[in-house]
Design a protein around this nucleic acid. Structure first.
Lengths: 206, 206
DNA sequence: TATAGTCTACTGAACGACCGGTAAGTAGTG
DNA sequence: CACTACTTACCGGTCGTTCAGTAGACTATA
């Protein structure tokens, strides 16, 4: 199937034969979770894609849910990092919003499979619910920026702030459903286009 | 769980006791598919939500995949219907695009769970792949309207037409992830806001 | 009015395949 | 000889599906 190269970590000086490292297992797992959904992905399927046995996976992680937890933590940490940067914390609210949205697009492209997994969560397990709570906190922080930009007069106020935020995220998050790195559109160009469409719309400039 | 009323079809004059009809089974199934994903939803879970046994479901449908096929056909038929209407087929390309987008939002709200299911497909079975092909054909028809509107000069031409179409659908399709009928925003207002944000953007009118 | 037969809409048990996870053993390396 | 990184074999449980049987409502005949 859609299997990256075996990617065994060449001898690292420790005892034992050459082996998959955690990162390789995680990459395969995230790809499989995105193809079939977390619940519907079996450990047997992961083993097949890795070219090993089910039980080999249990040497690297404590179980299926552990794989999910590690993957979601990576996506969330990268997104949260954007909010801590200087340009997200001071200056004009409109500029800060643009900076955060651009940063979100960049993270989304850089860790595409991991963020894809995060965005498709339904909250059926405790791990999923905790990740969704962290994601909601990120969304809330951006929603706050939207409200400030509205108050400053740089965002239109005739549309409900929650609706605005949701449509904004809807457009950005949809990127994971169609954008593939290596195509004609660079991540920088993509971020420019998204910000431009979101703020100025699709109609010809008046 | 989130179970609609048993909704048994009151005596219809035919032989046999009162019973679930196909529509009731389908509603429960679509809700469960949306909660857990199609693959991860078991027939046992459907039986539990219906308050019957697994095998009872097989009286109404030929199997799990049949439920999926019926549900996806409903969503696709409603969307395709929008394209056949007079206002989608003649007139100014910009107006036709607006009409189709508004129609898509209305279908999406009216058959929310069914369209949600359609939008979350990953193409792992033949039924899913056929539905995705029909959905791509719908998308292609809208993309054609976008190109015509560009040529007419009513849509900006500095952004790739494919990117434009995708961001447009991204925003519209995201509605299934947060909009719930019965809230403060009416479907008509929602459609207005979506069209307005898409064409004129979020920035204050210049 | 009594009863036999036909139909619908199920029930409950069982099927082989596969699920996540574990236990015990071992090949290769320092 | 210790340690890493596995392997094979297996566990109880659940999966989608099938099948034989049947309760209850209807109709046809006596």
């Amino acid at each position: 199937m859609s299997q990256t190269a075996p990617a065994r970590s060449a001898g690292n000086g420790r005892a034992g034969r050459e082996a998959y490292d955690l990162a390789a297992v995680l990459n395969i797992a995230v790809a499989a979770f995105n193809d079939h959904g977390y619940e519907a992905t079996s450990m047997g399927m992961l083993a097949q894609r890795l070219g090993t046995s089910k039980s080999a996976i249990y040497y690297h992680v404590s179980g299926k849910e552990d794989l999910l937890r590690l993957a979601l933590d990576r996506a969330l940490s990268e997104l949260e990092l954007v909010l801590t940067k200087e340009m997200a914390r001071s200056g004009d609210a409109g500029d800060r919003l643009r900076f955060v949205l651009r940063g979100a697009v960049e993270v989304l492209v850089k860790d595409l499979p991991y963020v894809t997994l995060l965005l498709r969560l339904r909250g059926n397990t405790e791990v999923e619910r905790q990740a969704l709570a962290r994601r909601r906190e990120f969304d809330r922080a951006v929603a706050e920026l939207v409200e400030q930009a509205r108050d400053d007069g740089s965002l239109r106020a005739d549309i409900d702030a929650r609706t605005t935020t949701r449509l904004l995220f809807g457009m950005i998050n949809s990127i994971v459903e169609w954008y593939r790195p290596g195509g004609p559109i660079t991540p920088e160009r993509l971020a420019d286009d998204v910000i431009s469409v979101a703020f100025d719309g699709l109609a010809t400039a008046r």
